[in-house]
Nucleic acid binder design. Sequence first.
DNA 1: CTGTTAGCGCGTTCAA
DNA 2: TTGAACGCGCTAACAG
Lengths: 338, 338
Amino acid sequence: MESTIKDIKRETGLALSTISKYLNGGNVRPENRKKIEEAVKKLDYHPNEMARGLITRKTRTIGFVIYDISGTFGGLLTHFVGDLMRQSGYGMIICDSNNDKDIEAQNIKFLVEKKVDGILVIPVSSDEDFLDCARRADIPIVTLDRSIPGAHLDCVTIDNAAAAQTAVEYLIERGHEKIAAIYSEEYTGKQRRDGYRNAMKKAGLGISGSYEYHEKIHSVSLGYTGTKKLLALPKKERPTAIFMSNYEVALGVVMAINEQGISCPGDISLISFDALTLNLVMKPMMTVMVQPMEEIASEAVRILMARLQSDGQMAIQRVLLSAELREGDSVRDLRSRR
Amino acid sequence: MESTIKDIKRETGLALSTISKYLNGGNVRPENRKKIEEAVKKLDYHPNEMARGLITRKTRTIGFVIYDISGTFGGLLTHFVGDLMRQSGYGMIICDSNNDKDIEAQNIKFLVEKKVDGILVIPVSSDEDFLDCARRADIPIVTLDRSIPGAHLDCVTIDNAAAAQTAVEYLIERGHEKIAAIYSEEYTGKQRRDGYRNAMKKAGLGISGSYEYHEKIHSVSLGYTGTKKLLALPKKERPTAIFMSNYEVALGVVMAINEQGISCPGDISLISFDALTLNLVMKPMMTVMVQPMEEIASEAVRILMARLQSDGQMAIQRVLLSAELREGDSVRDLRSRR
DNA sequence: CTGTTAGCGCGTTCAA
DNA sequence: TTGAACGCGCTAACAG
């Protein structure tokens, strides 16, 4: 049988409230503190979080709703967030939305019933309605990596359009003009496409319709299929560089060019996102826009914690971080050709 | 403010216990049942899990401790398990051990304090001591994917040695003799190495020391580095096939051979584990031993659920599943050469 | 600083 | 079947 606070009382002869106060960080006479500490050890006492929560109306648990946990980026972000939560003494219930809006809505409901103190979410839906039930229950919500357009919510994101623009401008500076883009139609994918278009427009470069390939969701096969299509273009039209909007996509792209015996950066230049395993291991090393994943995680956790403390009104926080270019060898400098 | 069972009482005029009984599936007069159902809807009532748990001593939450959530296999397994738990109405607290035994031990303690009803664990440590505090608290534990040697625990695993042996025998049947292996020194890696060795021995083939490459943990770079080393061997000694013990490893292997312009299966044959994205997308398609991931997940959940129900003594369950060979085009048949 | 008292929301006795 | 009372383990208010 588990020991309760009453057992500690019997062991020490102190009142319940004294013990409770000590357990919650209050001041107690040194001699009593010692008694309590000894009893706690002796009885292997752990406070019952449920009884505690019944009164405090806090579960010390937060919910993490992620669009897809089986991807590399998501898995890693989950890892960082989980670590931070644990360090803060919070438990984390992770819910995988599997890129499905309905499951996502279900997940939120589930977390509300579990009475989590707060919710961290990387959304699938671009409509905030699915969060209604959490808001009714007055549960703080922070979105990260993706922000819901127009929503009155705390969020931590990076400037995806700017990052993509930087990447494409890097290509343009090196003499590339025929630049293709492979991206998804959701959140970050779309924003990065915009950055690509901005850069091209700004440089006065046209975008041939066949230079943009996109599917609904970021995936390895998106990169693979897209690249195949690009490489099937008549030689003269072939892009000299491909910008891709995500790590999984890059994986597919690399598979496709390797398969066709196309060399990078000799025949084609590549630029992508995130310094994840493949991008680091491959040769040539991929030139990438590096997202500050740990910072995204820690900012999101920080904001959520702040909101958990402030019962009152705290202004909406919108943190916009930026990605940094990390040079590899996957981009050829065409200017040195002459 | 949240509505409680008392509000339902006020709304319906019934006694608390009547309502409580209905909520827990008991028999109630039809007219009363209707009243209650209406009130529940009207007040948007949800039972308070904490108050409930205080009495029943159940949290309807289980803990999932995973060796490393940022890997593809782990992420996917987490996804499956999470789905099943949600379907069973259970919450899941996921803890990432990050391949670290100390964090793993911490995770278990954390879950015990959270009073989870049960724990699912893919262990890092090969010593069961870290589970002691959960056992003292009488929390059922099921390990999956990996079983702790000698431990008196429910577990769901596949026969890794057999699977590896099947894979290597597949190579041998096709005339390969110079077969190298890249594996990790932990759990599944070691078992798969044994299967490799068994197959080689059984076929009367020697294993040159330089044909085995291993590191502590499965990773992309393990595959990459290992392959580089193998390819650096004098041409005559070069293996005609590589057996690799894990998906991430395969990723690295593929990167390395592509980089060197080595063709598969022309110059070298490959066989690996798991039908995950890369293995499906790449060309040639990888020949792999497919682990029944969903079955591993569902069996583990099933056993845990059974143990949660049976307060009494249930015999230890050890489920051993097997992997199946899925042919791709990554293995060359050397016999047809003649 | 300490002890007493009163619930938090619910499930479970019993009695009717 | 139903209703009243009790208590799960703990914290919060107050009085000492």
